[in-house]
Computed example of a mutant assay.
Amino acid sequence: MANPRAGEVAVILDERRRVMKLTLGALAELEEALGCDSIEALLARLEGGRVSARDVLALIVAGLRGGGWPGRAADLVAAEIEGGPVEAARLAALLVARAFGEAA
């Protein structure tokens, strides 16, 4: 079970429940993947209202890796996220919200 107070978000990936979390290491990977030089720049990009599919993928990968998943972005190309792209985007937004203080 994902613990919202710990910043965790559950995702069903290829019919398997996994936990995502934006640890410091995962955030560093996310900054690099999105070409941001700080957490402030990363948040500004994500809160700007123009989040791309690449951004959502990078967030999901970072969250999965923060949750202990050993994979890479290339491993998700053919993976099935339950709920599809809309659910992936919702989970990515929830992951950011929980990482930065909102336990909802």
Rank of each mutant, 00 (worst) to 15 (best):
G25S: 10
D37N: 10
R65N: 12
R5K: 15
L13M: 15
G25R: 11
V11W: 05
V96K: 00
L95H: 02
E80Q: 09
P70G: 11
A41S: 15
E15V: 08
M1S: 15
K21I: 12
A93S: 15
S52E: 07
A10I: 07
A53Y: 14
V19I: 15
A74I: 12
M1K: 08
D55P: 13
L59M: 05
V56D: 09
A78P: 00
V51L: 04
A73N: 01
V56M: 05
V96G: 00
G66L: 10
G48A: 13
V56P: 08
E31W: 01
L27S: 06
E102Y: 09
A93C: 11
V9M: 04
L46C: 02
L94N: 01
D14P: 07
E82Y: 07
A44T: 14
E29N: 15
L94V: 07
E31F: 01
L34A: 01
L30G: 02
G48C: 06
A97Q: 14
E87P: 06
A92H: 08
R5C: 10
I60A: 04
E82D: 12
L76E: 10
R45C: 09
L46V: 04
L57C: 06
G71I: 11
G35M: 11
L42I: 06
A89S: 14
A44L: 14
S38Q: 11
L22E: 00
E40S: 08
L57M: 15
A79N: 11
A97M: 11
A92S: 12
D75I: 04
P4C: 08
D14Q: 07
A58K: 04
D37K: 06
G66T: 05
G68R: 09
D75A: 07
I60C: 04
A93I: 05
S52T: 14
R72P: 00
I81G: 02
A99C: 13
V61L: 11
G68Y: 10
A41E: 13
G67L: 12
R65Q: 15
V96N: 00
R65G: 05
G84C: 04
M20A: 12
L94M: 14
E80V: 08
L95Y: 01
L34S: 02
E40Y: 02
A26H: 01
G35K: 06
A78I: 00
G63Q: 02
L46Y: 02
V51E: 03
L57V: 14
A26Q: 01
V86P: 04
R65M: 09
P4R: 03
N3G: 09
L76Y: 09
A62Q: 00
G68D: 13
L30E: 00
T23Y: 11
A58N: 09
V9L: 03
R45H: 13
I12A: 08
S38E: 09
L64S: 06
E31A: 05
I12H: 07
A73H: 00
L42Q: 03
L30Y: 00
E102L: 09
D37C: 03
I81Q: 03
G67A: 12
A89G: 12
E82M: 05
L43H: 10
E102P: 00
G68Q: 10
A33H: 08
K21Q: 15
L24P: 01
L22Y: 01
